[in-house]
Design a protein around this nucleic acid. Structure first.
Lengths: 147, 147
DNA sequence: GGATATTGGTTGCTTTTGTAACTAACAAGT
DNA sequence: ACTTGTTAGTTACAAAAGCAACCAATATCC
């Protein structure tokens, strides 16, 4: 069945990464999608605000490696849901400071707990060493490619 | 700056996987997109046909974990580009056998070579052991979630 | 053999993403 | 001060993905 070629798709790292990413992301998706009707980008923006506190949209773009249009739309959606508040910043009237509302903080706490146990469960099958190794390698790959 | 919470986004495996996947996929994209005007799904279907020979659309769905609409449209695009041929199968008139044309094979050879050297370059910074480890772990994660 | 369910695949419609153009505010250079 | 360039963010339009309905062929069950 398999043609005898040297290249094997199943060993191509970007392919494996993509499969693993899709599989795990899809599995976790139900937590933020079903419960809160959030999209992947929205969830990610929320997490950034929850984790790092107040940020301008720009900061989120940088940190999360997301395009500004995606962030803009995600913020609009999160504001519409009442999870995020926007406040003008005095020094620069183009920009504004984003932060979680009370409700947004609740949601963040709920989802970060779920994320934690999801991750823990996902990683149970690996040794502590292996987990660290995987993380380190993934971070390498992330850093490497977009400099 | 960082709020003192227990959960760290930067340690959440699906997030890291997604970042790594996007970074590497985007970097490789130019090879199939710029040169051949192909989309990610098209490229993946092409690779499957190149690697495994003749397949029905259904088989590709299974192997590549792609929805049938995605495969259907990718095949249509690949046929339009003259990379893939379709042949009726006698036993079941609903289905048909897909295979690469001469041109499709050329493209496959070109791209698989590029993929190989891309991957090699991507992995240079890791030891042979680490590479094997990464692959094994990713395959685990893939198998686990939609197993 | 004929109704019913299932499968392979396509098409149409809706949601989401990507890209580029745009507005508004600020920064720099002259 | 005033053109020129940058930066923050939004919006509009095009491409792509997701989802459900659909058609046609084959299994299944009675």
């Amino acid at each position: 069945m398999t043609k005898d070629d040297s290249f094997d798709l199943a060993q191509f790292t970007p392919y494996l990464l993509n499969m693993a990413s899709e599989a795990t992301s899809l599995a976790f998706q139900k937590h933020y999608k079903d419960t809160y009707g959030m999209l992947r980008t929205e969830w990610r923006v929320l997490f950034h605000l929850g984790r790092y506190g107040q940020l301008a949209a720009r900061d989120i773009c940088d940190r999360a490696q997301l395009h500004k249009t995606k962030v803009s739309r995600a913020v609009a959606a999160l504001r519409a849901k009442g999870f995020v508040a926007r406040e003008d910043v005095a020094e620069d009237r183009r920009s504004s400071t984003l932060s979680l509302t009370k409700r947004g903080q609740q949601v963040y706490r709920d989802l970060s707990e779920r994320a934690q146990s999801f991750d823990a469960k996902l990683m149970t099958r690996f040794s502590t060493d292996d987990r660290a190794k995987l993380q380190a390698m993934l971070k390498e790959l992330i850093g490497q490619t977009h400099g």
